[in-house]
Design a protein around this nucleic acid. Structure first.
Lengths: 172, 172
DNA sequence: CAAAATAATTGTATTTTGCAACTTTTTCTT
DNA sequence: AAGAAAAAGTTGCAAAATACAATTATTTTG
């Protein structure tokens, strides 16, 4: 570090990371907040995904894609299991299922073992949809996230997984 | 690990990263998708933040917090500048401003230099609110994100910033 | 001076979301 | 075995957000 005649005004002036500025403005305390980056990334990613799925009846909102995949992969899965994966409450999950049922993508049956519970099954139409959605997810990962440098990808993915799992653990 | 007579069924079985399972279920292709983790993290983080701010009239939705801080820090800032930071369109930004004005947190004036544009200013009430929100953000970072291991924090923050900046660059 | 660009608003339509209250069926307790 | 507690889902409600297209007013450009 070079000589500096005066003391830094703030501790941050000591390190070499430049501040984040947008149009010449700083973002206050949000610059150091995990929540800011997570929420900002989400907004843009989700918007992009919505556009890609605009005509697919599972567009918009979080949970429909995961639900579709779970029902496709685990015939007979129950809404409460899905709610657990989604970290959502039952009403929210129930409504996601309502929509998929209404669209004819999945089927509801009463579970034979537990009359309170339901067993969900994919339909042919739903299975085809799931395949299409897989294609869209793959495309987004390749096209949208191309701004993540190749050498960063693995590290970022690993961090995300770790944080995600820790958050789940806290949640449960 | 016990002896394995047969070849692994999938390439993934070769490496040592365990698959992510929730309640015994895998999440299909989403397991390798950036979007899944970003969207899941966002949902839980945003819900937590909403609860913390439930009675603060800036609760819910993305953008109000950033807007409040920008107006607090940059008197005379214009809606279009805010929209740029938020990566939102003008109608969305305008409505965020509407609500803050209605709540008496900020004030709209016509910009002297450009009659089309507005200049926004914080009110005393809004400034007090901004201070409260700063406290909440700090509290959430400390309390909610305690699940991020201390040794991961810097690295995760750095990755998030890098990805965020690259995404912005792509967006512009 | 007319045309194009820019700032912001309005209108509209579609959804989400979270919470609380309620029904039905199982499971637990004593 | 009976009553209480827990669990699975549903319904109702209230509050908003979101995106997109079209419109008004003001500047800038050619």
């Amino acid at each position: 570090m070079t000589n500096r005649a005066t003391a830094p005004k703030t501790p941050e002036d000591e390190n070499d990371e430049p501040h984040i500025e947008i149009g010449g403005m700083r973002i206050d305390i949000l610059e150091g907040a995990f929540s800011y980056y997570i929420r900002s990334l989400d907004a843009v990613v989700s918007r992009d995904l919505d556009r890609r799925m605009a005509d697919l009846e599972v567009a918009k909102g979080k949970g429909k894609i995961t639900t579709l995949f779970l029902v496709d992969d685990y015939p007979g899965v129950r809404p409460s299991q899905i709610a657990d994966v989604l970290m959502r409450d039952r009403p929210a999950t129930g409504r996601i299922i309502d929509r998929l049922v209404a669209a004819g993508d999945i089927r509801r049956e009463t579970s034979p073992e537990d009359q309170r519970a339901q067993a969900l099954y994919i339909t042919d139409k739903g299975h085809a949809l799931a395949e299409k959605v897989r294609g869209i997810i793959r495309a987004q990962e390749a096209e949208f996230f191309d701004f993540i440098a190749p050498e960063d990808r693995d590290q970022f993915m690993q961090m995300l997984k770790r944080v995600y799992l820790n958050m789940r653990a806290k949640w449960d």
